[in-house]
Design a protein around this nucleic acid. Sequence first.
DNA 1: CGCTTAGTTGACATAGATCAATTAGGGTGG
DNA 2: CCACCCTAATTGATCTATGTCAACTAAGCG
Lengths: 205, 205
Amino acid sequence: MPETLCILERISTDIRKPAKSVVFRQGESADFIYFIQSGALRIDYQLEDGRNLVLDFLWPDRFLGTVENEVYAWSAIALVDVHLKRLRRSAVQTLAQDYPSVMDLLLQQKSASLIAAKNHIILMSCPTATNKLIGFLLDYSTRAEYFNHTTQVLTLVMSRKDIADYLGMTFETTSRVFKYLETKNYIKKINHRQIQLNIRMLKDA
Amino acid sequence: MPETLCILERISTDIRKPAKSVVFRQGESADFIYFIQSGALRIDYQLEDGRNLVLDFLWPDRFLGTVENEVYAWSAIALVDVHLKRLRRSAVQTLAQDYPSVMDLLLQQKSASLIAAKNHIILMSCPTATNKLIGFLLDYSTRAEYFNHTTQVLTLVMSRKDIADYLGMTFETTSRVFKYLETKNYIKKINHRQIQLNIRMLKDA
DNA sequence: CGCTTAGTTGACATAGATCAATTAGGGTGG
DNA sequence: CCACCCTAATTGATCTATGTCAACTAAGCG
């Protein structure tokens, strides 16, 4: 797999985007595929009724922009400063014909998206907002970049609203559940974006 | 694409399964990939807490069993009598190395699963049970096999509980929403499994 | 230091879960 | 072919979680 990345390296451009900037927008011509080197992204889907849905949060080593055909089916927004590799879609497709391992990589990435989508569906199916949020925190705490195992502190790169839009609830409810979890000592808020988790207790809950 | 199916045809076995039978079960060794010739399947995911989640409904021309690695990640159950092609996973993988079009097909199928998952997430994010069910009925009514365009009658191959487990609600709520939609003349129940839809009104709702 | 945005908290209304009882329908054996 | 049975579906009564709207506070940024 590293050698596959080398092949792709040759056709890729380094891109840096500041926090809150748009990497690509739903409906735009899908000319590029991106690979995340560092940082984190939010995938937004704008519904006709005006609601904004968060489909996923993406982390390093993931590709994005691979799913669509002519236009991007959703938007990608940088949550923090990100470092990306940008590849022209047509060039990747050409390479995929000569190098089966490139094709393998694309297939792998699609599998990763599918697994993420399945987890998302599972979270959304949880009967209560508390269950959803606990599931979210436990999933998120597996990201070494943002969870310090020694201090047990999780650094949230997304807002309460982002979490709410991901889990299918309102941001007020997200806020109240954080509060509830703190009263039960499941978590301890260092500040709005730094949360100390009691993983053991959260798993039992 | 038809020629790709011919290649696969050579390694496939015809299988018929009666309604309500299990095609494969979550956790079983994932030796086979299946292709749906006719009928309809339900994909179930059993959670540790005992809840059963319906991840998808599958229709003809779809592959299943392609996602997993060693064991099936979910179960597949026949909703009606189904006719399947069964292919040994290892044989498909061998073929994929020689025939890029087989690989393409696998990629395409994964894309189809991902699009389905995205739609599922969108449905689950709807604020009310009524919205969820209307979305479900509109999606479902695009299946020519089960929606008669002239009579506008939709034949449900799944139970109220299956729909509820798919949309993340209880079957009582499903039942009540059907009732509500009928009082508003959005639908007309011929019987429990035959529903006449007023597509126009449902789309506006 | 003040402004703007994100987050919290409160009061209230209500959709949907839960538990329970009843009815409809489909399949099976006599 | 009919009667019975079993499961699926409906309906009712009640309770509660969460949405909504609004006020207030914290925190980050210029």
